[in-house]
């Protein structure tokens, strides 16, 4: 049975699809770094980014269609993403709404905003008519551009997290009581973290929209799950290889590797003939498994059943 299924597959099709998966993984690695900042450094799961990604894409595409250059369009997409983070930060710190709910509110608000930006649910931007920075039509160049973006973003994030201000961000995510006692305005720091994270996601949205040649109001649906998948797969893998020696740059590198692995796995699963409709279900299962691994392995070491079995 298995042989029959495998016999029907074309290895060359997979081979042809892999570079694209690699490029997409790199682009989503930027989203992964955004999620890393909120989920890992600040210890806040920020669901805004499902909206922000589409906002970044919509903004970039509309700016390019309006005649702006692609780099200008992406700077604007980044700034609009930052504004989305500011909105969530306002909901969370000024209005006291729990972080998850604050993100959901922004995300829903952004859906309408994204429709307003584009005027409809989808806007195409052709690489034949406009100078785009990145396109799936030229995969090698796309990979090169994506790698450059990743390196610059990683270097900038590493630098920022090492500065005095970046240190306050890490301290806030780790222990707010301690941060306050050191004179850190933790609310402000949380807002700054959300702004940075969403700025990166907005930028990624701009790149992804150019890459696929259109912006869609649904392009960000499940972005948080893919971002989490990148962070979790990457960090579980990185820590299993390097253990405690995994430093900050190492962790970010593995987040990007996590995103690439995610897209390669998705490509393989599609190649195996699974319906693309089921991909989000598949993503959710993968993320759930990786989230559960640290908990379950901790439980295995010290479980009630084991403790009871000693008697």
């Amino acid at each position: 049975m298995a042989m029959v299924v495998l016999a029907g597959l074309d290895p060359m099709a997979l081979f042809r699809a892999l570079p694209g998966a690699f490029a997409q993984g790199l682009l989503w690695g930027i989203v992964g770094i955004g999620v890393f900042i909120t989920f890992k450094v600040l210890d806040i799961p920020d669901l805004t980014i499902d909206g922000t990604l589409a906002t970044g894409g919509a903004t970039a595409v509309m700016c390019i269609l309006a005649g702006m250059s692609a780099p200008t369009a992406m700077i604007i997409a980044t700034l609009v993403g930052a504004a989305a983070g500011l909105l969530t930060g306002f909901f969370h710190t000024t209005l006291g709404i729990p972080a998850i709910l604050a993100g959901i509110l922004s995300q829903i608000a952004l859906y309408s905003i994204n429709l307003n930006i584009m005027g409809r649910s989808n806007q195409a931007v052709s690489v034949d008519q406009y100078h785009l920075i990145i396109s799936l039509r030229f995969i090698p160049k796309a990979i090169l551009v994506a790698v450059i973006f990743n390196i610059v973003i990683m270097a900038a994030t590493y630098w920022f997290m090492g500065t005095e201000y970046g240190t306050t961000l890490r301290a806030t995510g780790c222990n707010q009581a301690m941060a306050n006692a050191q004179g850190i305005n933790t609310k402000k720091v949380i807002v700054v973290g959300l702004i940075l994270s969403n700025a990166l996601v907005g930028l990624a949205g701009g790149l992804i929209a150019q890459y696929q040649g259109n912006a869609d109001v649904n392009m960000g649906r499940g972005a948080i799950v893919i971002g989490l998948a990148a962070v979790i797969i990457g960090l579980v893998l990185g820590e299993s290889i390097f253990g405690k020696r995994l430093n900050f740059v190492g962790r970010m590198t593995f987040v990007i590797i996590g995103a690439i692995i995610y897209y390669i796995v998705i490509t393989v699963v599609l190649w195996l003939g699974f319906p693309s409709d089921d991909m989000k279900l598949f993503s959710a299962i993968v993320v759930a498994i990786f989230l559960a691994v640290p908990y379950l392995s901790g439980k295995k070491k010290a479980s009630f059943r084991k403790a009871g079995g000693k008697r």
Binding site: E164, Y165, T167, N175, A181, G183
Partner: peptide, 24 residues
Amino acid sequence: GTAADMELQENLALAYRRGKRFGL
């Protein structure tokens, strides 16, 4: 009183700047 995930020297560096402006 301390940030567990941060290095000892990073904790001290924060305390060394207590009440000052945290810049870049």
